[in-house]
Amino acid sequence: MATGGRRGAAAAPLLVAVAALLLGAAGHLYPGEVCPGMDIRNNLTRLHELENCSVIEGHLQILLMFKTRPEDFRDLSFPKLIMITDYLLLFRVYGLESLKDLFPNLTVIRGSRLFFNYALVIFEMVHLKELGLYNLMNITRGSVRIEKNNELCYLATIDWSRILDSVEDNYIVLNKDDNEECGDICPGTAKGKTNCPATVINGQFVERCWTHSHCQKVCPTICKSHGCTAEGLCCHSECLGNCSQPDDPTKCVACRNFYLDGRCVETCPPPYYHFQDWRCVNFSFCQDLHHKCKNSRRQGCHQYVIHNNKCIPECPSGYTMNSSNLLCTPCLGPCPKVCHLLEGEKTIDSVTSAQELRGCTVINGSLIINIRGGNNLAAELEANLGLIEEISGYLKIRRSYALVSLSFFRKLRLIRGETLEIGNYSFYALDNQNLRQLWDWSKHNLTITQGKLFFHYNPKLCLSEIHKMEEVSGTKGRQERNDIALKTNGDQASCENELLKFSYIRTSFDKI
C-alpha cells in the first residue's frame, strides 16, 4: 500500500482533458527560462521544448504516446526543470519506465491550478516501474492521483506527508504495488545497510526511497516546507523545498512566496507586481503582455491589467481597466465587458449561442446573426445582446428569417469595421425574408467608422429604411451602385405612401 494514499474509496472516473512563447529569463536562482504550460502528445517531438525550461508557468501534460519505446527515452533528460506552477499529468506514455532521468531536479509542483483537485496525476502508464522524482520536495496545493499503472512499484516507500501538507485526498490505487509483488529495495538494503531515512506512518517504520538508488530526502521537522541542505541544516524561511546553503534567500532552489532578481522575498516591493503567484514583474512586463494579447485571437491570451499590486489576466467583477495605466478602477454604474472572439468572429444561430455573449459591452471581433427560429426570440436576444455598444469588426445579418427588427441591439452605437466582410463591408444584410426595420432612427444613433453597407434580398425592408441608415451611420456616399439592390429590397412591402385627393359631386333626387 502506498504510504499516505487512500484505498478502496469510491472515486469519480478520471477524465483526461485534452506555445513556446518565453516569458522571460528567471535569473540567477533558476538555471534556465520560464516556459508556458505545455500539452505534449502523440510523439516526442515537442518534448524537446523543455530543454531550457527551469519553470513551467502553467501545467505540463505528457500523454497518448503509443509508439514510443524505452530506448526512445534513454537520452532524454531535462535537468534544468525545477518547478511547475500548476500540475504534472502523465497518461498512456508507452515505453517510459521512470522519471528519474527525465526530470531529475523537479523540486516543486505548486498546484496553482489543479487537474480535478490533483497536482500530480500518473494514470495508465503501462510501462512505468517507478516514479523516480527523487528531488520532489513540495506539492504546495492539491493532491496526488496514481492509478492503474500495472508495473509501478516504489510507492509504499514514499512518505507523501513530507511532500504535501495533507495526504487525506491522495488516491493511489490499482498499481502493481497493490499486489505486494514489488519487493522494493532501498539503497544499501541488499548489503544489509540502512542508507535512507525511515519514518513512521500508520504504525509502520519504513525506509523512504524513490528507487533502488535514490533515497527520499527527509528534512528535520523544524525546517517545515522550506527544505534543508545535504547536511540537514534548514533553508531560509522564504525558500521552498530545498537550498544549497542554509538561511540564505539567494540560495533557495525555489521560493515559498515570490522570486525577485535572484532572491526569494515575502512580497513584491514597489515598483514590482505579483505575477502568477510566484514571481515579481515590473510595469513594462505587464504592459507588454497586455499589448501582445490586445489584437491576438490565441486562446488563453489575456490583456493583463494591474489590481491590488498584482498583474492579473482581467479586472475583477465591479472594476474596469483604465487604459492609460492598466489599473483596475471601480465602475460607475454597470461595468464594461470586452469579449474577445477566439477566431475573430462568432455566429449567433440560437439563443444558446447568444447567451455566451451575455453582459458583453464591447465585441472584439465580428458578429454573424443567422437565426431561423426560436421561442420568445426578441426578448431572449435583447437579454443577451442588448448591452453590446461596440463591435470592432463587422455585423452580418444573414438568412435570419425569424427577425423582424434589429432593435434587440438596443445599445449598439459603434461598428468600427477594423475587419470587413469580403474585404469591403462593415454591415452586411443578406436574404432576411421578414426583416422590416433596422432601428427606430428617431431614437437610435449608430456610427460606422469604416467599410460599406450591403443589402440584398431583404424583400420587406424598404429602401427608405436603408437610406436612413446611410445618413445616420455616416456611410452615405461610400456605397457603390450594386451594394444596395434596388429590386430585391422592399419588393414585397408597401414602401411608397402617396396622399390621394378626392373630389365629389353631391346629387339628390331633384338636383344634379
Results as ranks from 00 to 15, higher is better:
T199Y: 08
H127F: 15
P270F: 10
C315Y: 00
C223Y: 02
D177L: 05
D248A: 09
D178W: 06
L90V: 04
N175F: 06
N242P: 07
I109E: 00
L120R: 01
T107M: 03
I56K: 15
C215P: 08
I84F: 00
N105R: 07
C182Q: 03
S143M: 07
H274S: 15
Y319A: 07
K80R: 10
S213I: 08
G192I: 01
C228M: 01
G227D: 02
C235G: 01
R141N: 06
H274R: 07
V305T: 08
C196R: 07
I185R: 06
Q303E: 14
L152R: 01
K224Y: 11
Q245F: 09
P330I: 15
C219K: 01
C153E: 03
Q61R: 15
V34Y: 07
I185F: 15
A190D: 03
C153Q: 03
G203V: 07
T157F: 02
E168R: 12
P334W: 15
G300L: 12
R141S: 01
Q276M: 07
E151I: 10
L114Q: 04
G142A: 01
T320G: 09
P334F: 08
R298L: 11
E147G: 00
H212N: 13
S143N: 10
Y319R: 04
V108H: 14
L152Q: 03
D165Q: 11
R74Y: 07
I62P: 01
D261T: 15
I84P: 03
L76K: 15
D75L: 10
D86T: 00
C264F: 00
L326T: 05
L289S: 07
A198I: 13
T85H: 07
L63Q: 12
Q61P: 00
G142D: 06
L63G: 00
L96H: 00
D165N: 08
K80G: 12
C182L: 04
V253A: 12
A119N: 02
L64W: 00
P36W: 09
E207H: 15
C331E: 01
F73I: 05
P31R: 12
P36H: 15
P313N: 05
C280R: 03
V173M: 04
C280T: 00
Y304I: 07
T329H: 04
L81G: 00
V108A: 09
L60S: 00
L155N: 03
I185G: 07
Q204N: 12
R297Y: 09
K191E: 03
P246S: 12
T194L: 14
C280V: 02
T194F: 10
Q287S: 15
M83Y: 06
L29P: 14
H48E: 12
T320P: 02
S317G: 12
S244T: 06
L326W: 06
I109P: 00
G95I: 05
N179H: 09
R297G: 08
L131I: 08
H291R: 08
V144A: 04
S324D: 11
P269H: 06
T229W: 07
L99R: 00
V265P: 00
K217A: 12
M83T: 09
N325I: 05
Y304H: 02
V144F: 05
T157R: 10
E314M: 04
S225G: 08
D39V: 00
Y94R: 06
C331G: 05
I56P: 01
L120M: 11
F73R: 01
P334Q: 04
G333L: 14
F103K: 02
K80W: 10
E130R: 09
V93R: 00
C301N: 03
L89M: 15
Y171I: 13
V144M: 05
S54A: 11
V55L: 00
D75M: 10
N308Q: 13
E238H: 10
C235R: 00
L120V: 08
D178S: 09
F283S: 08
R46Q: 02
D75H: 05
D261F: 12
C239D: 00
R256W: 13
P220Y: 04
G95R: 05
S54D: 02
H302P: 10
R113P: 04
I163G: 01
Y30L: 13
Q61F: 00
K100I: 08
N309C: 03
C280Y: 00
Q216N: 00
R297T: 09
N308E: 13
N295P: 00
G232L: 09
L89H: 00
E151M: 09
K80Q: 09
G95P: 00
H302K: 03
W160D: 00
Q204D: 13
R41W: 00
H290M: 09
C255V: 04
E238L: 07
D247R: 11
F66W: 03
Q61K: 15
I158Y: 01
C215S: 08
L60K: 01
Q276G: 14
F205K: 07
C311K: 04
F123S: 01
Y30K: 02
T68Y: 05
V218A: 11
R298I: 07
